[in-house]
């Protein structure tokens, strides 16, 4: 086999097809990650671009930074609540919509209406909900007052106890319908005969759900769980728009804290270290998912 044969156009074809993707990914995704590790070893800021080598000090600082602890806790909360609503509830809703209880015409109406929030821009959503959460003139407190639940009124975004939950709730509002559609698609792919024979055997809707729907959408469930969990660790924009992490860092998440440290506190190096932490977390989560799912070949 000669060199020229080895590098013949035919062999190169797949690589050429892949080249643009590889170039783009390498330049804008992977190179920055490597650079980020390098930057995290220095102390530098946007205003004073002199690099001072500090070794692993930025990482040591992460361990003792109480705001990191709060952020991590909030990210975990985000993940747990999101998995409950965007995977479990969304699946149940999808099953009900596809379960012949609701007429198809209404089914597709409901489906589209619940999906709508997910097409809205994050600032549209964020500002709208800021208005809804306003303590005095906001929709939510007025509603609570109106239905006789006035004692539940809160300064939703200004109270350290409720701020992060209020933001998480908005995310659920926005994304449940989106995931529901993906589940609907998956459920539609389940052969109708399975349900038919279950019905003949007298299985009710709940047991049809448990014994047919859940096992057969396992793959989608896994993918959605992974995407939701990782999404919960990536979250930045909705928090930045709604609370910017306040009050008193109560709604801080890693992404938000990173941005604040980099572009507000003038500590680019430390921000890079936080970014590394975020990278390690998402990497580990992906790894765990691959082990659990063993669906690596299909992904």
């Amino acid at each position: 086999m000669t060199i020229s044969r080895l590098f013949s156009a035919r062999r190169l074809t797949p690589y050429l097809f892949l080249l643009p993707a590889i170039l783009v990914m390498a330049t804008f995704v992977y190179l920055p990650i490597i650079e980020n590790f390098y930057y995290s070893l220095f102390r530098w800021s946007s205003i004073d671009p002199r690099f001072t080598f500090v070794g692993l000090n930025n990482y040591k600082r992460i361990l003792s930074d109480s705001i990191i602890t709060v952020s991590l806790r909030n990210n975990v909360l985000y993940a747990v609540i999101s998995v409950f609503f965007q995977v479990f509830i969304a699946l149940v809703l999808a099953a009900i919509l596809e379960g012949r209880v609701i007429r198809p015409r209404w089914g597709s109406f409901f489906r589209n209406m619940l999906f709508l929030p997910s097409v809205l821009a994050i600032t549209v959503v964020g500002i709208t909900w800021q208005l809804i959460y306003r303590p005095d003139t906001g929709l939510l407190n007025q509603f609570l007052e109106g239905v006789g639940l006035g004692f539940l009124k809160r300064t939703w975004l200004g109270d350290e106890g409720t701020a992060i939950y209020s933001v998480i709730a908005v995310s659920q509002w926005q994304w449940v319908g989106y995931v529901m559609i993906l589940f609907i698609v998956a459920i539609q792919a389940i052969p109708e005969e399975l349900y038919e024979s279950a019905r003949i055997d007298g299985a009710n809707l709940v047991s049809q759900f448990i014994h047919i729907t859940v096992p057969l959408v396992r793959e989608t469930t896994l993918v959605m769980t992974t995407i939701t969990v990782i999404g919960a660790f990536k979250v930045f924009d909705i928090v930045w728009v709604m609370t910017a992490g306040g009050p008193n860092h109560a709604s801080e998440v890693l992404g938000n804290y990173l941005y604040r440290v980099a572009f507000r506190n003038d500590e680019m190096g430390y921000a890079a270290a936080i970014a590394s932490l975020l990278f390690i977390i998402t990497f580990l989560l992906t790894f765990v998912q691959l082990r659990l799912g063993r669906s690596g070949e299909e992904v």
Partner: peptide, 16 residues
Amino acid sequence: FNEGPNGISHSGARSS
């Protein structure tokens, strides 16, 4: 102070 200052913007307070 009014209730929940941390949840109100400065300009919102000014409006009231």
